[in-house]
Design a protein around this nucleic acid. Structure first.
Lengths: 173, 173
DNA sequence: GGCGGTGTATCAGCCCCCTGATATAACGTA
DNA sequence: TACGTTATATCAGGGGGCTGATACACCGCC
């Protein structure tokens, strides 16, 4: 949209609408990168009518079929409740089937259907395309550097010093 | 928690529950860092009964009062629809007031109330505490490096070469 | 003066994600 | 065998985010 200088809420905003952030937080850069990543992936996957969580779940199932909902939740780093709805949506689409485990009456294991396999391959190609933009923009040394810095940031954020528990420990990837 | 080796869905999962990811994507590191960041901020802000989007909105209003919903949406990088619900929740809490702009009948401008100002200061202190963990873990050179790599990643992801529009162009921060 | 484009706000519907609570199945141990 | 622990799945409720669609106000142009 470029920008519109009409600014109809004019009676305030003494400086600019987005003034130079006094706390130009490093966290903001992380957030923007993640937002760009998930946004582009969402756009790419929309062409096959999949959301990002749905795609990640399918990918996990392609790698090792017959996982339970709880396993998938851990693998996708979401709560079991969230995975329940994702799986329900995937089943509605006919991409997976769920049946009780042969070794545990309570467990529902999920498997890709034929069309689920096909769509997963298509979706993965699309998602890799987005990821490719990252690896194209950074040389291998920079990629390693970025990964290192991010991992250290993650560790620092997750406390390890705070002492308190992490609530639902979904971080135990 | 830790891990349980029972693995009741056993009839599948030929390898481990979370097999070494064949595509050990860089994007995953970004996602994890952002998830840790927002998770810790959420935890910190819960003590003052605020969500992250609510806090960001308050912070924007503190910096320049009287912004419209659309301006706030752009500043927070969310859609106007989302901002509508955030503002409604903030108004219910008595932290902001909204009134029609003097220059545009259609526009509702938001202002912090007295308690809104007070809570924003408290919340900002909490959020800064989380951000502090980042700056403590990385020396200044590394921080600059991380910011640089993230910004380049964001730019690469957002295309600038893809040519297509970005859908709702909320990226115009 | 009428008209369309732009900006704004909001409703509706859907998905994701969380916390909290509940119910059931398998396992280990007394 | 009875009991408690663990893991599982699911329901209920709420916040947030998106797209799509609708409605109103302003502005500029004809």
């Amino acid at each position: 949209m470029t920008d519109h200088s009409t600014d109809p809420a004019g009676e305030a905003a003494p400086a600019a609408p987005a003034p130079a952030n006094p706390h130009d937080r490093l966290g903001h850069a992380i957030k923007r990168a993640e937002q760009a990543l998930i946004g582009e992936k969402t756009r790419a996957l929309r062409t096959v009518d999949l959301t990002v969580p749905q795609y990640v779940t399918l990918l996990l199932l392609q790698q090792s079929t017959g996982m339970s909902g709880a396993q998938l939740a851990r693998g996708c780093m979401v709560t079991p409740q969230t995975m329940t709805t994702v799986l329900a949506n995937l089943e509605t689409k006919g991409l997976i089937t769920r049946e009780t485990s042969s070794v545990h009456q309570k467990v529902l294991v999920a498997r890709l259907t034929r069309s689920g396999h096909a769509l997963t391959r298509k979706a993965d190609a699309l998602a890799r395309g987005v990821e490719q933009r990252l690896t194209d923009a950074l040389d291998p040394a920079e990629q390693a550097q970025l990964r290192n810095l991010l991992d250290r940031s993650t560790a620092a954020l997750r406390g390890t010093d705070g002492g308190a528990d992490r609530g639902t420990d979904r971080g135990a990837d």
